[in-house]
Design a protein around this nucleic acid. Structure first.
Lengths: 176, 176
DNA sequence: GTTCTGATGTCAGCAACTGACATGGATGTC
DNA sequence: GACATCCATGTCAGTTGCTGACATCAGAAC
């Protein structure tokens, strides 16, 4: 993972071959593909852990919490996990922004996170449609908050960026 | 596009080679790749037209419409374009659901649609953050409405499914 | 009639990925 | 201590997605 990140930053994602990553890591190309399904997946090692944290927080939310609040609890828990190393997040975000194929993978992971969160809501007794709506709305706020956080002069830490997006969203829905 | 769709349905996306699509269409593999950037793109020919329709409807929305309402006008215009042939939409949705790599591409297109819609909102004077939030929320409602529409026993046409999702979302935000 | 252009074919080649089999070192068992 | 087992890795050959360079050829323009 470290070798790949270095090479992607040094010479770009498409200009880096799997063989080169493997060589820098001291293994064969075949071994690389035993650990990562494809060249992109190497940047998404933390996705499953993030999902686990989010889901656990949703489950742990108070029973009386609304679907949206439960999802938000999950998102804040996820933000706490990521919010530590902003530099790494910025570097990674720049890579994704420059490579549509990496962005595709990111969007797939976020969508999967949304579906998993919707499942968690259903376990709390929420119906299918509102569960998906609440979950994906939460992921949107998470994602847009993330963009704010890794952008120029963020208003605070990751959680604060999420709160900011959330406040904007509430204002928007009130105005409509 | 027709040859590809047939083959993808007949034997699956991954089991179909670009050479086979080309052969059925009566051209060479090289010619196939001159028209489509990759094997997936052949299923997304209508994306640019859909985006154009959505953006035009956002621009055409009354000046006093709220950001959310303007985006929704765009989504309903898009729904009108797609809502005609449900059979084709179902077939395509089944393909996407069965192939993560196709779903990735779909999510990228939807995300791009959201960003374009956000740009359209900014042209109406909306600030960056609320523009993105309203746009992506609109796309979420569009997308989840689409899933309802191509699912088992939808409550009406595509537009009606969007209205249903929208009503649910309003209820959720009111409850939070 | 010539020229020019645009679509297509041909061919060689790279890189992503995969399956099948070999190897070698660590671990456990008698 | 010899032996069996297992797991990670290496090796190798092959398929497929995709690209660049050049050839061809039919029709439009002049």
């Amino acid at each position: 993972m470290q070798s790949a990140m270095e090479l992607y930053v040094e010479r770009g994602f498409e200009q880096t071959t799997a063989a080169e990553i493997a060589e820098r890591a001291g293994v064969t190309e075949r071994t690389f593909f035993r650990y990562f399904a494809d060249k992109r997946e190497v940047l998404f090692g933390g996705a499953s852990e993030l999902q686990r944290i989010v889901l656990e927080a949703i489950e742990a939310a108070p029973t009386e919490a609304s679907p949206v609040d439960a999802v938000l609890a999950g998102m804040f828990a996820g933000a706490e996990r990521i919010g530590g190393n902003r530099d790494w997040s910025c570097q990674r975000a720049a890579l994704l922004a420059a490579n549509p194929s990496l962005m595709e993978r990111e969007l797939l992971k976020l969508s999967a996170l949304g579906e998993a969160a919707a499942d968690a809501l259903r376990l709390r007794g929420v119906a299918a449609l509102p569960a998906r709506l609440a979950a994906h709305t939460g992921v949107s706020v998470f994602s847009i908050g993330f963009d704010t956080w890794v952008g120029a002069d963020p208003p605070g830490d990751f959680a604060e960026c999420i709160r900011m997006a959330l406040a904007e969203l509430r204002e928007l829905t009130a105005a409509s």
